[in-house]
């Protein structure tokens, strides 16, 4: 470690968080809400990839699919089964919304793993909007579908009467913490992985002795990140389904 410190003073630079910076693509000046930034660029690339995969890939409508169409169909079937299994038959009509969330997160996570890429899902602002959208939608659906009886979600009727107010408070807190954990889980996972990658990459410049280990570490972490990218998209989606199930069938 001492050697590292020595080298650090000799020009080692850690910028693990620089990759998350938002900047204007054209010209100078402050970032307004309409400014075209790297966020815009990478979201546009994500849209492009989604179009290539889901629209161009399925253009032939082949009964015997080629590779791209096969991927698209697998994703479709995967999410469709998940929505149907977790939320039940009446949750299927929300499938396009859930699939939109899933494909956006999945594509952003994977695109973010490209070298030099900007990861849109590593930003709290992005994931918080996603999670808040789910939270608000689920709450509204819950009240519209069940009326006041949606509050039965917090009133655990199977518990002893004395415990119920306490449980109601706990359930209420856990309900309102949902968007927080939902968003931070995604952003935190992605940000942590990318920051660790950068830290390992920084170690690689320390010296010939450490560089192989550092590069091996980068490879290992990168492989883990590929896994995490898919799993976090999956987790975000399945939690959305679970919350939606709570809204559609609030009885425990």
């Amino acid at each position: 470690m001492a050697e590292t410190t020595q080298s650090a003073e000799g020009g080692l630079s850690f910028h693990p968080l620089d990759q998350f910076e938002v900047y204007r693509l054209f010209g100078e000046g402050p970032v307004h809400w309409y400014t075209i930034t790297n966020v815009t660029l990478w979201m546009a690339i994500a849209v492009l990839c989604i179009v290539l995969l889901l629209v161009m890939g399925t253009r032939k409508r082949a009964v015997v699919p080629n590779r791209t169409q096969s991927i698209a169909e697998t994703l479709y079937g995967f999410i469709y089964t998940m929505v149907e299994d977790v939320t039940g038959k009446d949750g299927v009509k929300y499938f396009p919304y859930i699939f939109t969330l899933f494909i956006f997160i999945l594509m952003s996570n994977f695109l973010g793993l490209l070298p030099m890429a900007f990861t849109t899902t590593s930003h709290i602002a992005v994931t918080a909007v996603l999670a808040l959208a789910v939270f608000i939608a689920v709450t509204v659906i819950g009240f519209v579908k069940n009326g006041v009886s949606f509050l039965g979600l917090f009133w655990v009727s199977s518990a002893p009467l004395a415990l119920r107010p306490i449980l109601a408070v706990i359930e209420g807190i856990s309900y309102f913490v949902r968007p927080v954990s939902h968003s931070i889980r995604l952003a935190g996972n992605v940000m942590a992985g990318h920051a660790v990658l950068k830290v390992f990459a920084g170690f690689a410049q320390v010296g010939l002795l450490i560089a192989p280990f550092a590069i091996f570490g980068v490879i290992a972490i990168y492989a883990l990140e590929v896994l995490v990218a898919a799993i976090q998209a999956y987790v975000f989606t399945i939690l959305t389904c679970v919350y939606l199930k709570d809204a559609l069938h609030p009885s425990h």
């Binding site: 977790v86 889980r185 996972n189 942590a192 799993i231 999956y234 987790v235 939690l239």
Partner: peptide, 19 residues
């Protein structure tokens, strides 16, 4: 699915401390 939800909840807390 339950496994992944459980892992996600456990890991979320770790991510919180990392945050």
């Amino acid at each position: 699915a339950t496994l992944f939800i459980g892992i996600a909840f456990a890991e979320a807390l770790g991510i919180f401390s990392f945050l």
